[in-house]
Design a protein around this nucleic acid. Sequence first.
RNA 1: GCCUGCAUAGCUCAGUAGGUAGAGCAACUGACUUGUAAUCAGUAGGUCGUUGGUUCGAUUCCGACUGCAGGCUCCA
Length: 648
Amino acid sequence: MSIQITFPDGASKRFDAPITGLQIADGISSGLRRNAVAIEVNGEAWDLSREITADATVSIITRDSDEGLEVLRHDAAHVMAEAVKELYPETQVTIGPAIENGFYYDFAREEAFTPEDLEKIEARMKDIVKRNEEIVREVWDRDEAISYFKSIGEEYKAEIIADLPADETITVYRQGDFLDLCRGPHLPSTGILRDGFKLTKLAGAYWRGDSNNAQLQRIYGTAWSDKKQLKAYLRRMEEAEKRDHRKLGKALDLFHLQDEAPGSIFWHPKGWAIYQAVQSYMAARQYEHGYQEIKTPQVVDISLWEKSGHASKFGDDMFTLVNDEREYAIKPMNCPCHVQVFNQGLKSYRDLPLRLAEFGSCHRNEMSGSLHGIMRVRSFVQDDAHIFCTEDQIQAEVKGFIDFLHSVYADFGFDEIIYKLSTRPEQRVGSDEDWDRAELALEQALNDNELEWELQPGEGAFYGPKIEFSLKDCIGRVWQCGTMQVDFSMPGRLGAEYVAEDGSKQVPVMLHRAILGSIERFLGILIEQHAGALPAWLAPQQVMVATIVTEANDYANEVAQALRNAGLRAEVDLRNEKIGYKVREHSLQKIPAILCIGKREAEEGTVAVRRFGSKAQTVMTLEEFVEQFGLEVEEKQLFDAGTNNPKE
RNA sequence: GCCUGCAUAGCUCAGUAGGUAGAGCAACUGACUUGUAAUCAGUAGGUCGUUGGUUCGAUUCCGACUGCAGGCUCCA
């Protein structure tokens, strides 16, 4: 019998059935065969060794494609599990998927793995690759599979199989003496994995992601198509880690943290200068967008948090204090306070939408393990605002907000934003009808803006669904920054009302929103995004005036004063040091512009400008520099350190 | 909170198979007045995170605590 195989370019060819992906690849070219790791058959990824018995459209998956890398990484996980079982037979295997850049496998074992064990495991993995064991796909009967895995002491595997949907085919992959439940696809043999992998870290992880369950030991690894790719990745990571905001915060003297105040930041002059630049920028932008800024109390009676529902859901994470037999909470968020401001006086539908903004200082007693540099802290300031509006106004407000957010992120130099829609959680307040409408409103806004977004079912806040706007840090970790949440319930719980056109009293809808999220977190990401070399408008010190000889001191001071008068953040370095030393130091501090002042400049009334990232020196008059640099600051130009040109 | 690891001078790090520690940079002093990424010489600087234990003796070994790092969980 012959079957028709159609290729990606539309061409097709007849083959004698059955035929395998490996044979097809071999027939096309030896290079393709060498690089093949799997085959896509009618849109489904198959093993190269699986027999194709009917007409099909196929495409060979190669080792350097995204799909191919996923197969390699998944195989690396299996090879690791095999290695672990060989070295530590008492270990139970659970799950081991491919992830971005690599893979992991979760193991259950009494004794903890040590970093030295990782080396042993990695060495054994290399052995298994060298053995080039054939990887064989087998279809098993469900009950047989369950009893087999139980019989060899793999309780977790048995549990996974028992929970698979009834119509799912149970496939088991065999490599050497190691059998693992898996959907596949896998490589034809372990040798094809080659040597582009490395075990990277050891971590704890809960069985099925639930902290009530047993904690397993997770081993992470990274895997690439070959050793060269692996090395390139490791080098990239090493470079990226140099941009870590904690390192730069210290090196650039921006802030520090210390034991006595875990999760709280001591901002130093330069860090605070950035902080203030960001905050005052946001204040101006919000004013422009029709927000009114307010300020609400830090310490508020616990009863308000009970009414809002926060005390019952987040009570453990709130800092509370008792004074004169009265219990207070240090505000963990601003919303209930904003409703109090709304509630003062009688509001009309003509007042809506009412946009109240606050740089709200919040304290949350986050679990110690979740603290992370200045990205996740216990004391932070949100660029928070609440929009009180009618249901009809939601669409326009959400749309307007998304545009606003995009323009802010663009000013800061962020072009990659991750959008997520989080919908109703199990524990929530409000009717299902309200949730339906709120979720729909957000979904529509995302689609109207033609954004690519990811759905996170059950991840919404307890009072409403939300859109999350996330950014990535230097090593690719995703952090939520902006948010837009629709809330139909809190205004009602806290007694907010307005008089409608017909004279009736109505409860407004409340939109919770933030663009930066926590200013602290945003600054952390901002520092990493620019590797500490902030664009001129954000740089804590924008200009450094450095003298070459003492004789130029007076003129240098005049220059610095003129720059300050022009609204620029300028310092002067009169130290008795060589100019090379000063240039080096201020370059390491990533100051956007160094003005070198010698006898010549003092006599001519000029400045010798050296921009960060460039070795070029440009002599111009002080006036010319103020105009040029001032414009760059005013226009919030993003400076490209590599080319010394403003970015598009 | 849980798992694994880490904590030495202001910073970056070395070191002690258990006998109270060292480098570079920074700081300070002096000389040098300098033209675009480190001028030279000298001085000073540490209860080796805190706290128990083992030991004649602990920075080193063991435990607890605190903090940090990487994950997991959580994130109003």
